[in-house]
């Protein structure tokens, strides 16, 4: 067996499924987070996991400080070593002291507060910095960023696994074989998005499985389907009829997160256009509230052209002219968003 070609085989797929998320419409409601958690991570050892999650950015994010924990590849394609995360980074399994507050005589003196897994008052948890803005008044800004496994085309987790337990399906979904995994966590270190979680109960690593039992039946992944803001499109990147293709390939307004990580991720984001900034006299300017250099840190230099296209197409529509791009972004029929993945889950 030639191990290098074995890795290439594990990393290759016939097609590639992709999700597009319009950040102009995400309101941080966590419906995607809850949809995922209800289905997949209520088993012992998975309490801390949010395979789908939404954070306030710029911010420390989820898992905590994931953007400074390394992993991925350098410009020459060499592996960059990353760090592990601990259970507090990963959101912990906070519990409220309901019994103390409601059922005891001293309840009047007890304060309702989240407790960490070790019983201590929580100092960090999932979405701990929700809605904490950056910038200075009156130009404070933030945006919500929903995340999940990127099912990367150049998946570092597959490279990192010393047991070859991780592979891509023909549709591009990256899965960890739970029978092969022995919990070494090289994949956790290698993933620059930190979207792989160790399960201390099974002693194996887990991550988003792209709801494959659903997509195998033509049902969209729960995070995409349950999005009440209708921010999401889903389908194959090579399907020219799909909104995914049109937004990513044709209009080029949906961009990968941190493309500099070198992993070719397959969740794409329509960057936030944001509102206009005020000048020092309180007058609206033509500048966007979210500085372009901030967005560039997340979505790379392509964000300039993507935003220019979005602004131009919005103006075109405002002027009373048709715009295919705006029609896609406001499409009201949910079936239009999900290509062939429009079957009902029940």
């Amino acid at each position: 067996m030639n191990s290098t070609s074995e890795k290439q085989r594990l990393k290759s797929s016939k097609r590639q499924l992709a999700t597009v998320i319009d950040l102009n419409k995400c309101m941080g409601c966590q419906s995607c987070t809850v949809a995922c958690k209800n289905i997949w991570t209520q088993r012992p050892g998975t309490e801390h996991m949010r395979w789908a999650n939404v954070g306030t950015y710029p911010g420390r994010g989820y898992p905590r400080d994931w953007q400074s924990k390394g992993g991925g590849y350098d410009k020459q394609g060499r592996a960059l070593q990353g760090q592990l995360i601990n259970i507090v980074d990963a959101g912990d399994n906070l519990q409220f002291n309901h019994d103390e507050v409601l059922n005891h005589e001293d309840g009047q003196n007890a304060r309702l507060e989240p407790r960490s897994a070790d019983g201590q008052t929580a100092k960090w948890g999932y979405n701990w910095d929700e809605d904490q803005a950056s910038g200075k008044w009156p130009n404070a800004f933030f945006f919500y960023l929903p995340r999940k496994c990127n099912h990367c085309s150049n998946a570092p987790c597959i490279d990192a696994c010393s047991r070859n337990a991780i592979s891509k399906r023909d549709d591009g979904v990256v899965l960890i074989d739970q029978d092969r995994c022995t919990g070494h966590r090289h994949c956790v270190e290698a993933c620059p998005y930190k979207m792989i979680y160790f399960n201390p109960a099974t002693k194996r690593s887990e991550k988003c499985i792209e709801c494959f039992p659903r997509i195998d039946k033509g049902i969209a992944p729960a995070c995409n389907r349950q999005c009440v803001g209708r921010t999401r499109a889903y389908g194959y990147l090579d399907d020219k009829d799909s909104q995914v293709y049109k937004l990513v390939r044709q209009w080029k307004v949906a961009l990968p997160l941190h493309p500099e990580y070198g992993t070719e991720p397959n969740v794409y984001y329509v960057p936030p256009m944001s509102t206009y900034a005020y000048d020092s006299d309180g007058r609206l300017t033509d500048d966007m509230r979210i500085p372009l250099e901030v967005l560039e840190q997340y979505f790379g230099p392509a964000v300039h052209q993507a935003l220019a296209t979005l602004v131009a197409q919005r103006q075109q529509r405002k002027d009373g002219n048709p715009s295919q791009l705006m029609d896609i972004l406001i499409s009201k029929v949910w079936q239009d968003r999900f290509s062939e993945f429009t079957n009902e889950p029940v």
Binding site: N2, S3, T4, E6, K7, R78, A79, Q81, G82, P156, D159, A160, C161, S162, N164, H186, E189, A190
Partner: peptide, 12 residues
Amino acid sequence: LTNAVSPYMSRT
């Protein structure tokens, strides 16, 4: 020797 099975581990 492990570069082919884990370029990440091999560089630690």
